[in-house]
Structure formats: structure tokens, C-alpha cells
Design a protein around this nucleic acid. Structure first.
Lengths: 224, 224
DNA sequence: CAATGAACGAACTGGCTAGTTAGTTGTACT
DNA sequence: AGTACAACTAACTAGCCAGTTCGTTCATTG
């Protein structure tokens, strides 16, 4: 039973053939995919290595073969999640806009990113529960600066010299202000709904919150 | 060894005697205290019943005796944490101030509360990882409205009729805006520090952030 | 084609951990 | 003084779960 091994020419399958059974990269990636959703779903202690393996087309042994252990798998998961987000942020192009429009666009981009990456937000929340001890020990992660920050800094500088923006905040403060709004909306969605009976992610309210964020940041920056 | 049992008159120790050994309320409260810090520290799955028992002057059996199980203990922990916070919020008195001052004071009060109750914030984060399933099933918790919200609604109303405040947000939106800022600052402290190397809870920056929050909310509300 | 090493799988193990059992001791009331 | 019940304890158990053992299969290279 099973696929006959003499189907395709063996010498042709060196790279990229779709029906190859042994593929380290594919196996690694599949484990990472499953691990991401499992860790995001249950947290680090809540996730089970057996469960991750079961949702994979491979076995638990492979997790230890490729990653070494549960904790290293978790760190690898974090590293990939951050890398993906950062590569998206690389693509930001708002430097051609005037400062006010640029800030609003940047805020709305962040808003959209957060909404479309709930797993990432959950992983970050989980990592904060663990006091970021895994990020701290990962050399890949602790040196991963945010490229969007430089963009933000330049916009702020332009807005300040034009006399439109206040000068008692730096880029990191503004970034924090935007992140706080976006992260809270996703990360605290469930308790907020349970206690106040309002779903902050209801599509009907999406535009309202998106505008609210832009207004909030800009009214603050352009005050007086 | 141990305290002699014939020390104080037994009939006098019915209430509030300090040297009684058997005290259901005290034991219950002690378990809750330890459980709060353990759950806040390690999360629900990360916390260990044995560990909680060990940090208590009583035993694991007592946890099952009084609470029934790990999950019920966790719910009881959440219930008490929320009750404490809500009782603090009851004491808010800003209705005598004009709307602008009242909003700033309310925001700063929230800021201070969050800063002085990190365990509460952590419990809320943890509960959100679990999609608020425990709050949802607790009748005590899901019916626990926020008294500060009514206060906020009345201030907003006064500010609007005076023509100072915008009218496209309700009290819950403003509450969310304030909470987002305060919660993010505490809850995401560790990843923020690891990645941007800035401690949002550094006392040297406290006043800056406190003013930033008030400015942000007020500039937004009084825009145009 | 043999040999070598990477990729894979099933079954196992030992420590851990939520929950239980089977009792003992203190307190209130009569 | 005796009884009933609440408060309490130590030791146990069954199941879970991260990590391992040991063996097999596939693909490449000489």
C-alpha cells in the first residue's frame, strides 16, 4: 500500500517537486504553523507538544529533531511571528505625504495590521505574561528594531519644523500611543465584551474606531 | 510544644481573637491572597495547586475544601480582584468639577489605579488569553458594571451641552481610550522594554505619561 | 550498488500534578 | 462530659506530558 516509489524519476526530484515525501523545510514550516496557532490559542504552559504533533502530518519526534524542545519551539514561533510583522512594516511608504496625512495613514496601517494578525497580538500578550524572558534571551529578537519607528521619527521632525506638531513627545511615545489603542482593542476584547457587552471588533464599529484613533493622535500632536 | 490551649478564656474567642488557630475566613482569605499572586505570576495553566498550598500556612486539601478545585479557585480570585477594583472606583468624586478638569482627574485616577494594581492587570490579560470564559460563566462577574462609567457619562453630557466636547463618542469609547493607554503601559511593559529598550514604568517618565494621557483625551474631546 | 547520513515513526519512561482518601483535632452547644 | 460538626492534615493515586529510545526508510554520493 502507499504511493509506488518508482513513479517519477528520482533524479528529477532534487528541488521543488510537489510529490516528494521527505522535505525538511516543509516539515519545519508545518510544525511552526501549527505551533503558532497552538501557542497563541493556549499559551505556553497551556499548549501541549503532543497536541501540536497530532495536528501535524509528522510526529512529536520531529519537533525534538528540528527544534530541540518545547521552549525552543516557542521561541522559534515568536521569532518567525515578529519577522513576518517587521517585513510587513518595511513596506510602509508615507514619506511623500504631508505630516498630518502621513501620521493618519501610519496609524490606520497599524490599526489594520493589528486587526489582521490576532495570533501575533496573542503571542505578544503571552510573552508579556512571561515577562519577555524568551525575547530577552533570543539574539534574533532583541536586536530586531522596528523600521516603522524611523519613518515615524522623520514625519514627526517634519511636522515639528513646519510648526504643526508639539515637541514634547518622541517617536516612541507616539508609537506607544497608537499601539496601545490597537493592541487593547484586540487583546482585551473578551473581558471588555463580558463586562461592558460591547464587541470592540464588531465590523459595524470598525470605521468609527479607525477614525477615532487617527483623530486622537492628530488632535494630540497638533494641539494649541 | 505549641501555644497552650488554656491561655485565654475560650468563651471570649468567639470573634476577632488574634490567637485562634481555626479560622475559616482567615484561611480562605490567605488561600485567595496566595492564589492571586501565583495566578497573576504564572497564568492559569502555569500556576500549581501544590505551589499555592506550599506558600500558604495551610494545606492543599483546604483549597479543595473551600474552593472545590483549581478552576473554581481561579474564578474566586478573579471575582475578588474585580470586586476590589470596583470598590475603589466607587469612591470617585469629580462631579463638582467642570467637565474638562473632571475628565483629566478621572483619567489620572485610572492611571494611578492601574499603576498600583499590576496583579489585577495581569489577571485580566490572562483571562483574555482564555477568551474570558471564566468571567462569562461567573454570575458575580458578568453582572459587575463599572460605576465609574456612569460618572463619565454624566461628565461627557455636561461637557457636550456646554459645547466643549465632541458628540461622536460615548462614555464607553472614552473609557476604552483611557484604559487602552493605562493597560498597555503595564501589560506590555516587558516586550516593549525588550524591543525598544524603554521602560514605560520608569518613575522618571511617570509624570510625562500621566500628562500625556490627560492631554490626549482632552485634546480629542475638545477638538475643533 | 553499497554505504552513509538525514528524515522519519511508534512506543516508552519518569517526573509531575490535579484531585482524593481516610483520617485527626478544635469548637460550639447541650 | 459528651456529641456533632467544622476545620484541618498527611499520604496517596491515577493520569498526564515533556522528553527519549531505538529502530526504519529515503536520498545522495562514490
Amino acid at each position: 500500500m502507499g504511493a509506488p516509489p518508482s513513479n517519477a524519476a528520482p533524479t528529477d526530484r532534487t528541488l521543488g517537486s510537489p510529490e516528494r515525501q521527505r522535505d525538511a523545510e516543509r516539515t519545519r514550516a508545518e510544525i511552526l504553523d501549527v505551533a503558532t496557532s497552538e501557542f497563541a490559542d493556549k499559551g505556553y504552559s497551556g499548549a501541549r507538544v503532543d497536541e501540536i504533533a497530532a495536528k501535524t502530518s509528522t510526529t512529536k519526534r520531529m519537533i525534538y529533531y528540528y527544534f530541540g524542545g518545547k521552549e525552543q519551539l516557542y521561541v522559534a514561533t515568536l521569532e518567525r511571528a515578529y519577522t513576518v510583522i517587521r517585513s510587513i512594516e518595511q513596506a510602509v511608504d508615507v514619506e511623500h505625504l504631508d505630516p498630518v496625512d502621513a501620521i493618519r495613514q501610519l496609524a490606520e496601517l497599524t490599526f489594520d495590521h493589528h486587526e489582521s494578525h490576532p495570533d501575533f497580538i496573542r503571542l505578544v500578550s503571552i510573552e508579556n505574561i512571561h515577562r519577555a524572558e524568551h525575547i530577552a534571551t533570543s539574539s534574533t529578537l532583541s536586536s530586531l528594531a522596528n523600521p516603522a519607528l524611523d519613518v515615524l521619527a522623520r514625519i514627526l521632525e517634519r511636522g515639528r519644523t513646519a510648526g504643526h506638531f508639539r515637541d514634547d513627545v518622541d517617536a516612541l511615545d507616539v508609537h506607544m500611543m497608537i499601539s496601545a489603542f490597537c493592541v487593547f482593542r484586540t487583546a482585551n476584547r473578551h473581558t471588555f465584551k463580558a463586562i461592558f457587552d460591547r464587541d470592540m471588533l464588531d465590523p459595524a464599529r470598525r470605521e468609527h474606531y479607525r477614525r477615532m484613533l487617527g483623530d486622537m493622535v492628530l488632535e494630540y500632536l497638533t494641539a494649541r
